[in-house]
Protein backbone atom coordinates (compact mmCIF):
# COMPACT_ATOMS: atom_id res chain seq x y z
CA UNK A 1 0.00 0.00 0.00
CA UNK A 2 1.11 3.51 -0.61
CA UNK A 3 1.10 6.59 1.52
CA UNK A 4 -2.06 8.08 0.19
CA UNK A 5 -5.32 7.27 1.79
CA UNK A 6 -7.38 8.07 -1.28
CA UNK A 7 -7.14 6.00 -4.46
CA UNK A 8 -5.54 7.85 -7.37
CA UNK A 9 -7.82 9.06 -10.13
CA UNK A 10 -6.93 8.88 -13.78
CA UNK A 11 -7.86 11.74 -16.09
CA UNK A 12 -10.67 10.56 -18.29
CA UNK A 13 -10.66 13.04 -21.13
CA UNK A 14 -7.77 13.59 -23.49
CA UNK A 15 -7.72 17.18 -24.77
CA UNK A 16 -4.13 18.25 -25.12
CA UNK A 17 -4.11 21.07 -22.65
CA UNK A 18 -5.84 19.09 -19.96
CA UNK A 19 -3.84 18.88 -16.76
CA UNK A 20 -4.83 16.31 -14.14
CA UNK A 21 -6.57 17.91 -11.23
CA UNK A 22 -4.47 17.99 -8.12
CA UNK A 23 -5.99 15.77 -5.53
CA UNK A 24 -5.23 16.37 -1.91
CA UNK A 25 -6.82 14.09 0.57
CA UNK A 26 -7.45 15.96 3.78
CA UNK A 27 -6.39 13.80 6.66
CA UNK A 28 -8.87 13.95 9.49
CA UNK A 29 -7.88 14.16 13.13
CA UNK A 30 -9.08 10.63 13.70
CA UNK A 31 -6.84 9.38 10.96
CA UNK A 32 -3.91 11.34 12.27
CA UNK A 33 -4.26 9.76 15.71
CA UNK A 34 -4.82 6.36 14.14
CA UNK A 35 -1.70 6.62 12.05
CA UNK A 36 0.28 7.83 15.03
CA UNK A 37 -0.77 4.84 17.09
CA UNK A 38 0.06 2.39 14.32
CA UNK A 39 3.37 4.06 13.64
CA UNK A 40 4.21 3.78 17.33
CA UNK A 41 3.34 0.08 17.25
CA UNK A 42 5.54 -0.40 14.20
CA UNK A 43 8.41 1.46 15.80
CA UNK A 44 8.02 -0.50 19.02
CA UNK A 45 9.92 -3.39 17.45
CA UNK A 46 12.95 -1.12 17.07
CA UNK A 47 12.47 -0.08 20.67
CA UNK A 48 12.32 -3.67 21.92
CA UNK A 49 15.35 -4.77 19.95
CA UNK A 50 17.23 -1.65 20.99
CA UNK A 51 16.35 -2.18 24.63
CA UNK A 52 17.49 -5.79 24.45
CA UNK A 53 20.87 -4.76 23.07
CA UNK A 54 21.20 -1.84 25.46
CA UNK A 55 20.30 -3.70 28.64
CA UNK A 56 22.42 -6.74 27.84
CA UNK A 57 25.34 -4.40 27.24
CA UNK A 58 24.57 -2.34 30.33
CA UNK A 59 24.25 -5.41 32.53
CA UNK A 60 27.21 -7.15 30.97
CA UNK A 61 29.49 -4.12 31.26
CA UNK A 62 30.76 -5.20 34.65
CA UNK A 63 31.91 -8.51 33.25
CA UNK A 64 33.52 -6.90 30.20
CA UNK A 65 35.36 -4.49 32.48
CA UNK A 66 36.53 -7.27 34.76
CA UNK A 67 38.02 -9.34 31.97
CA UNK A 68 38.72 -6.98 29.10
CA UNK A 69 39.46 -8.64 25.79
CA UNK A 70 40.23 -11.91 27.49
CA UNK A 71 36.46 -12.44 27.62
CA UNK A 72 36.80 -13.60 24.03
CA UNK A 73 39.94 -15.67 24.52
CA UNK A 74 39.49 -17.28 27.93
CA UNK A 75 38.08 -20.81 27.92
CA UNK A 76 37.46 -21.23 31.65
CA UNK A 77 34.29 -20.04 33.36
CA UNK A 78 35.29 -19.30 36.95
CA UNK A 79 33.31 -16.20 37.81
CA UNK A 80 34.27 -16.35 41.50
CA UNK A 81 37.91 -15.73 40.69
CA UNK A 82 37.12 -13.39 37.81
CA UNK A 83 38.58 -15.69 35.18
CA UNK A 84 36.00 -16.39 32.55
CA UNK A 85 35.38 -16.11 28.83
CA UNK A 86 33.46 -17.54 25.95
CA UNK A 87 36.34 -19.02 23.97
CA UNK A 88 35.10 -22.51 24.81
CA UNK A 89 31.31 -22.17 24.99
CA UNK A 90 30.93 -20.20 21.77
CA UNK A 91 32.78 -22.63 19.46
CA UNK A 92 31.17 -25.56 21.26
CA UNK A 93 27.74 -24.12 20.61
CA UNK A 94 28.63 -23.57 16.97
CA UNK A 95 29.82 -27.17 16.72
CA UNK A 96 26.49 -28.44 18.09
CA UNK A 97 24.66 -26.24 15.59
CA UNK A 98 26.85 -27.49 12.74
CA UNK A 99 26.25 -31.12 13.67
CA UNK A 100 22.54 -30.33 13.70
CA UNK A 101 22.80 -28.73 10.25
CA UNK A 102 24.74 -31.65 8.76
CA UNK A 103 21.97 -34.00 9.82
CA UNK A 104 19.00 -31.71 9.21
CA UNK A 105 19.77 -30.10 5.87
CA UNK A 106 19.70 -33.20 3.61
CA UNK A 107 16.61 -34.59 5.31
CA UNK A 108 14.78 -31.27 5.41
CA UNK A 109 15.49 -30.23 1.83
CA UNK A 110 14.58 -33.60 0.34
CA UNK A 111 11.47 -33.73 2.50
CA UNK A 112 10.56 -30.24 1.28
CA UNK A 113 10.95 -31.38 -2.35
CA UNK A 114 8.77 -34.36 -1.52
CA UNK A 115 6.02 -32.31 0.09
CA UNK A 116 6.06 -29.62 -2.58
CA UNK A 117 6.54 -31.72 -5.72
CA UNK A 118 6.23 -35.46 -5.24
CA UNK A 119 3.58 -36.09 -2.60
CA UNK A 120 0.19 -37.14 -3.97
CA UNK A 121 -1.98 -34.07 -4.19
CA UNK A 122 -4.50 -35.38 -1.70
CA UNK A 123 -2.08 -35.85 1.20
CA UNK A 124 -0.10 -32.68 0.51
CA UNK A 125 -2.21 -30.49 2.78
CA UNK A 126 -1.96 -33.04 5.56
CA UNK A 127 1.83 -33.20 5.20
CA UNK A 128 2.11 -29.42 5.31
CA UNK A 129 0.07 -29.39 8.51
CA UNK A 130 2.21 -32.15 10.01
CA UNK A 131 5.44 -30.31 9.30
CA UNK A 132 4.03 -27.09 10.73
CA UNK A 133 2.85 -29.00 13.77
CA UNK A 134 6.31 -30.46 14.20
CA UNK A 135 7.65 -26.91 14.21
CA UNK A 136 5.15 -25.95 16.91
CA UNK A 137 6.08 -28.75 19.33
CA UNK A 138 7.72 -27.16 22.38
CA UNK A 139 11.46 -27.58 22.64
CA UNK A 140 11.20 -29.12 26.07
CA UNK A 141 9.22 -32.00 24.59
CA UNK A 142 12.02 -32.53 22.07
CA UNK A 143 14.42 -32.48 24.98
CA UNK A 144 12.46 -35.13 26.89
CA UNK A 145 12.21 -37.30 23.81
CA UNK A 146 15.89 -36.89 23.09
CA UNK A 147 16.90 -37.67 26.66
CA UNK A 148 14.72 -40.71 27.21
CA UNK A 149 14.11 -42.14 23.75
CA UNK A 150 16.93 -41.14 21.45
CA UNK A 151 19.92 -41.10 23.78
CA UNK A 152 19.83 -44.75 24.88
CA UNK A 153 19.14 -45.92 21.32
CA UNK A 154 21.77 -43.90 19.54
CA UNK A 155 24.64 -44.77 21.87
CA UNK A 156 25.23 -48.05 20.01
CA UNK A 157 25.60 -46.18 16.74
CA UNK A 158 27.89 -43.60 18.33
CA UNK A 159 30.03 -46.38 19.74
CA UNK A 160 30.25 -47.96 16.32
CA UNK A 161 31.16 -44.61 14.75
CA UNK A 162 33.94 -44.10 17.25
CA UNK A 163 35.32 -47.64 17.05
CA UNK A 164 35.42 -48.10 13.27
CA UNK A 165 35.41 -44.88 11.24
CA UNK A 166 36.93 -43.24 14.31
CA UNK A 167 40.17 -45.15 13.78
CA UNK A 168 40.78 -43.24 10.58
CA UNK A 169 38.94 -39.96 11.15
CA UNK A 170 40.48 -38.13 14.11
CA UNK A 171 37.49 -36.04 15.23
CA UNK A 172 35.31 -39.14 15.55
CA UNK A 173 37.70 -40.78 18.00
CA UNK A 174 36.74 -41.21 21.65
CA UNK A 175 39.84 -40.98 23.81
CA UNK A 176 38.23 -41.80 27.14
CA UNK A 177 38.01 -45.53 26.55
CA UNK A 178 35.14 -47.83 25.72
CA UNK A 179 32.89 -47.41 28.75
CA UNK A 180 29.17 -46.66 28.55
CA UNK A 181 29.35 -43.16 30.00
CA UNK A 182 31.95 -41.88 27.57
CA UNK A 183 29.37 -41.61 24.78
CA UNK A 184 26.13 -40.37 26.31
CA UNK A 185 26.37 -36.58 26.56
CA UNK A 186 28.34 -35.68 23.48
CA UNK A 187 27.92 -32.67 21.18
CA UNK A 188 26.94 -35.19 18.53
CA UNK A 189 23.89 -36.42 20.44
CA UNK A 190 22.91 -32.88 21.44
CA UNK A 191 23.27 -31.88 17.79
CA UNK A 192 21.09 -34.79 16.72
CA UNK A 193 18.28 -33.66 19.02
CA UNK A 194 18.64 -30.07 17.84
CA UNK A 195 18.57 -31.27 14.23
CA UNK A 196 15.11 -32.69 14.83
CA UNK A 197 13.98 -29.27 15.97
CA UNK A 198 15.29 -27.43 12.93
CA UNK A 199 14.16 -30.00 10.34
CA UNK A 200 10.56 -28.71 10.38
CA UNK A 201 11.71 -25.08 10.15
CA UNK A 202 13.93 -25.67 7.14
CA UNK A 203 11.36 -27.97 5.56
CA UNK A 204 8.43 -25.63 5.86
CA UNK A 205 10.34 -22.52 4.72
CA UNK A 206 11.86 -24.17 1.68
CA UNK A 207 8.63 -25.96 0.79
CA UNK A 208 6.95 -22.59 0.69
CA UNK A 209 9.60 -21.24 -1.65
CA UNK A 210 9.44 -24.32 -3.89
CA UNK A 211 5.69 -24.10 -4.21
CA UNK A 212 6.02 -20.54 -5.54
CA UNK A 213 8.06 -21.64 -8.55
CA UNK A 214 6.26 -20.30 -11.62
CA UNK A 215 3.81 -22.70 -13.20
CA UNK A 216 4.65 -21.59 -16.72
CA UNK A 217 8.29 -22.57 -16.39
CA UNK A 218 7.35 -25.93 -14.91
CA UNK A 219 5.10 -26.62 -17.86
CA UNK A 220 7.81 -25.46 -20.23
CA UNK A 221 10.21 -27.97 -18.70
CA UNK A 222 7.67 -30.77 -19.08
CA UNK A 223 6.93 -29.69 -22.63
CA UNK A 224 10.61 -30.06 -23.46
CA UNK A 225 10.36 -33.67 -22.36
CA UNK A 226 11.71 -33.36 -18.88
CA UNK A 227 11.08 -35.92 -16.20
CA UNK A 228 9.78 -34.63 -12.91
CA UNK A 229 13.25 -34.62 -11.36
CA UNK A 230 14.56 -32.81 -14.42
CA UNK A 231 11.87 -30.20 -13.91
CA UNK A 232 12.69 -29.87 -10.22
CA UNK A 233 16.39 -29.57 -10.93
CA UNK A 234 16.11 -27.05 -13.71
CA UNK A 235 13.17 -24.94 -12.50
CA UNK A 236 12.27 -25.41 -8.86
CA UNK A 237 15.71 -25.65 -7.27
CA UNK A 238 17.29 -22.68 -9.10
CA UNK A 239 14.17 -20.66 -8.36
CA UNK A 240 14.31 -21.53 -4.67
CA UNK A 241 18.08 -21.32 -4.17
CA UNK A 242 18.04 -18.07 -2.21
CA UNK A 243 15.11 -19.24 -0.14
CA UNK A 244 16.82 -22.52 0.61
CA UNK A 245 20.02 -20.83 1.75
CA UNK A 246 17.99 -18.45 3.86
CA UNK A 247 16.03 -21.31 5.40
CA UNK A 248 19.23 -23.15 6.26
CA UNK A 249 20.67 -20.03 7.86
CA UNK A 250 17.52 -19.48 9.87
CA UNK A 251 17.82 -23.07 10.99
CA UNK A 252 21.41 -22.40 12.01
CA UNK A 253 20.29 -19.38 14.03
CA UNK A 254 17.65 -21.46 15.75
CA UNK A 255 20.15 -24.20 16.47
CA UNK A 256 22.56 -21.66 17.99
CA UNK A 257 19.89 -20.33 20.29
CA UNK A 258 18.37 -23.65 21.27
CA UNK A 259 18.60 -23.99 25.01
CA UNK A 260 16.52 -26.54 26.78
CA UNK A 261 17.06 -29.63 24.67
CA UNK A 262 20.82 -29.02 24.73
CA UNK A 263 20.89 -28.32 28.46
CA UNK A 264 19.05 -31.57 29.17
CA UNK A 265 21.44 -33.70 27.12
CA UNK A 266 24.93 -32.37 27.68
CA UNK A 267 27.25 -32.56 30.61
CA UNK A 268 28.85 -29.11 30.73
CA UNK A 269 32.57 -28.67 30.17
CA UNK A 270 34.75 -25.69 29.42
CA UNK A 271 37.26 -26.74 26.83
CA UNK A 272 36.99 -26.44 23.08
CA UNK A 273 35.55 -29.60 21.57
CA UNK A 274 37.86 -31.41 19.18
CA UNK A 275 36.20 -34.84 19.25
CA UNK A 276 32.48 -34.56 18.71
CA UNK A 277 31.57 -38.02 20.02
CA UNK A 278 33.19 -37.54 23.41
CA UNK A 279 31.25 -36.84 26.54
CA UNK A 280 30.87 -33.19 27.49
CA UNK A 281 29.73 -30.16 25.52
CA UNK A 282 28.45 -26.66 26.07
CA UNK A 283 26.75 -23.73 24.44
CA UNK A 284 26.09 -20.16 25.49
CA UNK A 285 22.37 -20.68 25.88
CA UNK A 286 22.64 -23.82 27.96
CA UNK A 287 25.35 -22.16 30.05
CA UNK A 288 22.90 -19.37 30.83
CA UNK A 289 20.07 -21.80 31.58
CA UNK A 290 22.20 -23.86 33.95
CA UNK A 291 24.04 -21.02 35.71
CA UNK A 292 21.55 -18.15 36.07
CA UNK A 293 20.74 -19.18 39.62
CA UNK A 294 24.13 -17.90 40.81
CA UNK A 295 23.33 -14.78 42.70
CA UNK A 296 26.50 -12.70 42.81
CA UNK A 297 26.39 -9.76 40.42
CA UNK A 298 29.57 -10.58 38.55
CA UNK A 299 28.30 -14.07 37.59
CA UNK A 300 25.02 -12.63 36.35
CA UNK A 301 26.86 -9.89 34.51
CA UNK A 302 29.06 -12.49 32.85
CA UNK A 303 25.97 -14.38 31.69
CA UNK A 304 24.48 -11.15 30.34
CA UNK A 305 27.68 -10.51 28.41
CA UNK A 306 27.58 -14.04 27.00
CA UNK A 307 23.93 -13.46 26.11
CA UNK A 308 24.87 -10.29 24.27
CA UNK A 309 27.38 -12.20 22.15
CA UNK A 310 24.72 -14.82 21.33
CA UNK A 311 22.23 -12.07 20.52
CA UNK A 312 24.64 -10.29 18.19
CA UNK A 313 25.65 -13.51 16.46
CA UNK A 314 22.11 -14.75 15.82
CA UNK A 315 21.08 -11.27 14.74
CA UNK A 316 23.80 -11.18 12.09
CA UNK A 317 22.95 -14.69 10.88
CA UNK A 318 19.23 -13.98 10.74
CA UNK A 319 19.62 -10.61 9.02
CA UNK A 320 21.82 -12.26 6.39
CA UNK A 321 19.21 -14.98 5.99
CA UNK A 322 16.40 -12.42 5.65
CA UNK A 323 18.37 -10.48 3.04
CA UNK A 324 19.12 -13.68 1.10
CA UNK A 325 15.49 -14.73 1.14
CA UNK A 326 14.40 -11.26 0.15
CA UNK A 327 17.01 -10.83 -2.62
CA UNK A 328 16.40 -14.15 -4.28
CA UNK A 329 14.06 -14.35 -7.20
CA UNK A 330 11.69 -16.32 -5.04
CA UNK A 331 11.31 -13.46 -2.66
CA UNK A 332 10.83 -10.87 -5.38
CA UNK A 333 7.26 -11.94 -5.90
CA UNK A 334 6.31 -11.40 -2.29
CA UNK A 335 8.35 -8.37 -1.32
CA UNK A 336 6.29 -5.19 -1.35
Amino acid sequence: MTDTSAPPLTPSADPAGDVPRRITAPVSTGDRIFRGVLRAAGLSVFLIMGLIAFFLLYRGMQAFRATGWSFFTQQKWLTESGVFGIAAVLPDGIIIALVALVIAVPVALTAAVFVAEYAPYRVRGLLVSLVDLMAAIPSIVYGLWGLFFLQPRIVGFVRWLSMHPGQYIPFLKVRTGDIGTSYTSSPFIAGTVVSLMIIPIITSLSREVFSQAPQGEREAAYALGSTRWGMVRSVVLPFGRGGMIGAVMLGFGRAMGETIAVALIISPKFTVTTHILEDGANSISSLIALRFGESDPLSLSALMAAGLVLFALTLVVNMLAAVLIGRSRSGAATAD
Binding site: F46, F55, S139, M256, G257, T314, M319
Partner: peptide
Protein backbone atom coordinates in the same frame (compact mmCIF):
# COMPACT_ATOMS: atom_id res chain seq x y z
CA UNK B 1 10.26 -2.74 10.48
CA UNK B 2 9.66 -5.93 8.51
CA UNK B 3 13.35 -6.83 8.62
CA UNK B 4 13.52 -6.25 12.37
CA UNK B 5 10.38 -8.33 12.92
CA UNK B 6 11.98 -11.14 10.90
CA UNK B 7 15.06 -10.94 13.07
CA UNK B 8 12.95 -10.86 16.21
CA UNK B 9 11.12 -14.05 15.21
CA UNK B 10 14.41 -15.86 15.37
CA UNK B 11 15.53 -14.23 18.62
CA UNK B 12 16.95 -16.96 20.86
CA UNK B 13 14.35 -17.50 23.54
CA UNK B 14 16.95 -17.45 26.29
CA UNK B 15 17.92 -13.92 25.26
CA UNK B 16 14.31 -12.80 25.70
CA UNK B 17 14.40 -14.25 29.19
CA UNK B 18 17.74 -12.63 29.93
CA UNK B 19 16.41 -9.29 28.73
CA UNK B 20 13.39 -9.36 31.05
CA UNK B 21 15.63 -10.60 33.86
CA UNK B 22 17.98 -7.67 33.26
Amino acid sequence: VRTVVEAMTALPSIVAGLFILG
